[in-house]
């Protein structure tokens, strides 16, 4: 049998069978999937905006009500600014990424290249999470604890322990968040990036190496 004959058998089997699909059920499923996908995105964005605004509101209120001196007010305002930054940064970044998202109606090479750009963006974000996400939160938080400790009249051993524990908790939370993100990069994003790069290389290459 040669390729032409194989093609004939292929066609013959296609013609000799039919695919039974309930298009109404499938259409309903597709609509449901689309809705589920859109509402998941909406929920995620809404959650980030709400959390950011609540953080901003709470710390702004704290700054007005409990800001005994410039340093304390300043540290609370920094935390509030961080909340606003979170409320703006995530939805804007998601919206920008959605605009650049690969469209399966483009050619395969374009689609892979755009997917790669997205994966690289996610890797960059998570690898640098300490700079754009953790430090902007940890610095005002640590500053707040330092100021609270500093303005306190008596520096007894209880307040020293409380201050140390607070700072250690901030450091541990940041460290855990950093490790968690790095493990996500290693476990999911790097393999995905390699898979896409391999696919793109295999698409662009015109060598004759047989790789089974």
């Amino acid at each position: 049998m040669d390729f032409d004959e194989l093609q004939k058998v292929w066609k013959q089997v296609q013609d000799g069978s039919k695919l039974v699909i309930d298009t109404d059920i499938l259409t309903k499923e597709v609509k449901r999937n689309k809705k589920a996908f859109e509402s998941a995105i909406f929920r995620r964005d809404a959650l980030e905006i709400t959390a950011g605004i609540i953080i901003a509101g709470v710390f702004l209120f704290g700054a007005v009500k409990f800001g005994h001196n410039l340093l304390m007010t300043g540290s609370l305002i920094l935390m509030a600014a961080y909340g606003l930054y979170v409320a703006i940064f995530f939805p804007v970044d998601h919206a920008l990424q959605r605009r650049k998202a690969p469209r399966p109606s483009e050619s395969l090479s374009d689609c892979i290249e755009e997917s790669l750009i997205q994966v690289n963006h996610q890797i960059w974000l998570l690898k640098n999470v300490i700079w754009w996400y953790l430090l902007p939160c940890a610095v005002p938080a640590a500053l707040y604890f330092i100021v609270v400790y500093w303005v306190k009249a008596s520096h007894d051993w209880v307040s020293v322990i409380l201050f140390s524990v607070s700072i250690i908790i901030v450091i541990l939370v940041c460290w855990w968040a950093y490790r968690f993100n790095q493990s996500g990069v290693k476990k999911h994003l790097i393999p995905r990036k390699e898979e896409l790069e391999q696919l793109l290389a295999s698409l662009k290459s015109n060598g004759t190496t047989v790789a089974l």
Binding site: V9, S17, I25, L26, E29
Partner: peptide, 25 residues
């Protein structure tokens, strides 16, 4: 996102002409 899909087996193939040899190929 489709984990909790209510529908399964949305499609199935139905043979109109039996041709075992070709199908095996």
């Amino acid at each position: 996102r489709r984990k909790h899909s209510s529908q399964t087996n949305i499609f199935r193939e139905q043979q109109l002409v039996e041709s075992k040899q070709s199908e095996e190929v």
